[in-house]
Amino acid sequence: MIDLLALSPAWWQETFLIKVPIGLLAVLLPAGTIVYLYLFKAISFMQSRLGPMEAGPYGSLQLLAEVGKWIQKEDIFPSKADKFVFAAAPFVVLMSTFLLVVVIPAGPDALFVDLDAGIYFAMAISSVSVIGILMAGWSSANKYSLLGGIRAAGQLIAYELPLILAVVGVVIQAGTMNMQGIVLSQAEGEIFGWGGIGNPFILTQFIGFAIFMIAVQAELTQAPFDMPVAESELVTGYLTEYSGIRFLLFFIGEFASAGVFSAIAAVLFFGGWYVPGIDPANQIFNVIGPLVLAAKMMLIAFLIFWFRFTFPRFREDQLQRLAWKFLIPLSLANIALTGVLKVAA
């Protein structure tokens, strides 16, 4: 079986017809898993309740029921809304998620595109969702939506900077912006001459990882940075006027992005698809790589949702203060330190 796969390692890359369903799967499957495992179950256990129990065993089909419900619902447009922009906004948000997943490597050959500046592309694309959110907030003709959209724009731009600066440390250490290269440099790295587990960058870039995760939390507008959708203040911010299938698209976008960002974090800091003990050139990684990456991704995604359901929400000005006065200087210091150590080594 493995031999068969190894003969044509990335057999699923071959045709467009296969690529598209695989891409959809790569986005929707993690999103669905995250929603069921974390949003429905883990959080329920944290809050001393059971979560959905009726649909399917332990409520595992609840998500399908929810999706069915949203699809059935009427697609309502507010009478004063800018209809075209209102309709397009969820697709813009979802598009950025799909474009992000393109550059994430899941095995030596199991990837969609191998861009030389892959991480650069990912960081650039992640800001596209801001446009979608701003479109949604503006076109809804609702004050809550507008406030939410503007908050989102301010917040996402403020946290784009620490996000990128946190990645810079990794890029310096790996010496490449290619995501496959980053994985390989971790797989082939050594810790003080010992290459037993490679050199996952979490060991050296833990400050970068902390900043990256905080920034991701803000990028995903999860608590404690969920002011754009703060339900106790702005009802649900830019989502207020959305219903039915369009709300579902935003919902998928939110949780798929959580999965994709977790996967990027796994690639940058935890060695991506690599597990210690196996030669990274081994073709077996084309099969188990996606599973390894998914496992690492789920662990990191758990952090995101753990924080989400533990912390209260910042105020908008406090969030900006945190970004500009604390995270950005800290990440700059991290870059400087990494650079000095890199040159010294």
Binding site: Q47, S48, R49, A223, P224, S232, F309, T310, F311, P312
Partner: peptide
């Protein structure tokens, strides 16, 4: 009060 400030868990407790 915690829910109004954005933490959803305490209200369940």
């Amino acid at each position: 009060m915690a829910v109004q400030i954005g933490a959803t868990t305490p209200v369940f407790y």
